[in-house]
Design a protein around this nucleic acid. Sequence first.
DNA 1: GATGAATGAGTTTTCATTCAT
DNA 2: CATGAATGAAAACTCATTCAT
Lengths: 213, 213, 213, 213
Amino acid sequence: MSRNRFENLEPERQTRLFESATDELAEHGYDGASLNRILEKSGMSKSSLYYYFDDKADLFVTMFERAMKYLMREVGGFDLGALTSETYWPEIEAFYRRSVVLINHNDWFVRLGRAFYRVRNSKKTVAPIERSFAMFVRAAASVIERGQELGVVRTDLPHSMMVESLMGLGEALDHWVVEHWEEMSPDDRLEVVRVQMGMLKRLFGKDAENAES
Amino acid sequence: MSRNRFENLEPERQTRLFESATDELAEHGYDGASLNRILEKSGMSKSSLYYYFDDKADLFVTMFERAMKYLMREVGGFDLGALTSETYWPEIEAFYRRSVVLINHNDWFVRLGRAFYRVRNSKKTVAPIERSFAMFVRAAASVIERGQELGVVRTDLPHSMMVESLMGLGEALDHWVVEHWEEMSPDDRLEVVRVQMGMLKRLFGKDAENAES
Amino acid sequence: MSRNRFENLEPERQTRLFESATDELAEHGYDGASLNRILEKSGMSKSSLYYYFDDKADLFVTMFERAMKYLMREVGGFDLGALTSETYWPEIEAFYRRSVVLINHNDWFVRLGRAFYRVRNSKKTVAPIERSFAMFVRAAASVIERGQELGVVRTDLPHSMMVESLMGLGEALDHWVVEHWEEMSPDDRLEVVRVQMGMLKRLFGKDAENAES
Amino acid sequence: MSRNRFENLEPERQTRLFESATDELAEHGYDGASLNRILEKSGMSKSSLYYYFDDKADLFVTMFERAMKYLMREVGGFDLGALTSETYWPEIEAFYRRSVVLINHNDWFVRLGRAFYRVRNSKKTVAPIERSFAMFVRAAASVIERGQELGVVRTDLPHSMMVESLMGLGEALDHWVVEHWEEMSPDDRLEVVRVQMGMLKRLFGKDAENAES
DNA sequence: GATGAATGAGTTTTCATTCAT
DNA sequence: CATGAATGAAAACTCATTCAT
């Protein structure tokens, strides 16, 4: 129910709320995020917020889902089935590159990114948020599995360890990008994509598997 | 000021407070940790806590530093200067292995580990905690730098990116170990050390640097 | 003003609102009843409710009066003037019995009963509700007075004490019936009417008055 | 834990809180009672209240239990086992009379009485309050059962119906007393006790049982 | 006729911190 | 040394009501 209401809210106020909420989430994590502060920043009244959202969790889940939808629309996803052993890594890199370009134009997306990583470490996160996040992890797992099917991703590690490592390293790399964003030229940024993809390939690529032994 | 006082506190009460605080920190992170709950669990009075510590931050900083000191005493650190290109990776692996053995005997250390990672992502962390954590990061940086001096760690990445990647991947790997701890035999655990060291070497080792090109 | 409007509302929506409101009132009492919950259950919009009713009190007063009108229509009232000393108690019992039969077919009426008793004890009840309830009390008082005129109801008690006792005992008995409703056969129910009438007669009947001395 | 703390609170502040809480409870019932209003009236700070009590329910349960203890100390209870068929009704009447005398000196007790009846009808009453009240109902049930054992209380009604009737009628009678308290002389009041006991005996007494048939 | 939108004031509860004893 | 006591500020959430359309 809340979703429809929010869609009809004056876009400018949507944005104001959206940005305040994202900032707050990024700064304090889910548990620490204060609705009061969000409302103060966005100028919205407390009762209005509860008119648009069921509760704190609903607010952030909605934010997250909207952002994901936006990301998918702008950047596009993978057609996992269409990947081949030749296109696997290049496609991922292209996706990454497109994301970086997108971030170039929407700085609030960086803040959401930060927020995302914070929520991830919030134990008390209520069920719906957990679900939202689980969806994301599952996507990552699918990408890994597809790579293994195609024989381009190593298979000698426990699945869960791979997923967690990917998320952990990915977070660190993204975080680095976000943090150093402004001191880099557009070219630098694309170069970083190349470097970081190199790290992922080195860590998870099949060919490297043999190099170790 | 607080430090000296706390040292003189009856050891049994030290421990009780220590464990309560660590648990709370692990479960709720720094911002979410409640002094009230800690005091309830440990049976200490609120005013006593404020007698021994300046404030919330001081409490956790002290906890953390004591744990680090304990870790160093039990596990031993590196004498970075004494490392050679031959002993570099084996020494790190040995340190890791000793840590895992230690965890075997002190489960509260696992909890502290969890706590550590949670605090790390807490932006609002007051200055002193930040400082405590920075010390830890600096140690990691030193290890990396020494490896580069010895020519066994790659040098083609920005320093800060390497440090962050190490912390991120390290967190993920540790987290995986903590989470799967009980379903593993002692032998499994040591095998995991070997595997994870393989990942670190692959990601940061110099030899692999060429493999990429 | 509100009354006329509500009469013109689509009957099906009238009923939906009616039932939601009655349920809510029964469960939470007047003060505790939430318009929000009522509206959610009935699917009516908040502004519509305020179109049809002046405020919270007006809503419940209207509900109550409609129910009373309905009760009178279905069950029939007394023609107090037509009662004689012989028909007084039998007529009351017959009324009671008819009410029980009615409840058999309209379970929401049970809920209204519960609601009624809850409102009764709500001190803050706004003036109009008080008035509504007063009407009901007056009716009970009239029945008592008529019984006294006919010489079949005791006269040795303060009038107000009789009225209050009647309401108190009546509530308890009704409450008992409502609570045990489902575990009784139709025959049981009518037997209960007989038993409870016995109690009322014993407590208020004139003949019993002598028995005491 | 809370109990001890409250005992040590400055008696004058105990009383202030006690009276505010009782008044509030009497006026609005449990659900409707506002801690804010209580605190405003009593001049206590919100956090202090939560220092002395666990939560809203704990506050009222404590109030109730203290009052009951006080009542039992001042008025004395029954030794049910010691009652005989001759002393049963007189003892009850004596208890009632002593209570009325007590009320004479402590008008807040009247307010608590009102409060008690209101809580009773509060559906949402949290568990502890329910328990407190259940204890009271059980006491009433015991008195009834003892009377039946002694052959002075009728046995032709369902047990639960008797208990509920007793509570309902008792509430009404008490309520009447409270409401007319000030317009009566001390003698009037004791006369009322006699009259009301007459009603209870008539309704529940064994001898009357036959009178009916 | 009908309703979506907005809100101020309210709710219970928890927080970290201070201070007199 | 130790603590009982007190507090203001903040937390998430709900309330009945209003008004422009």
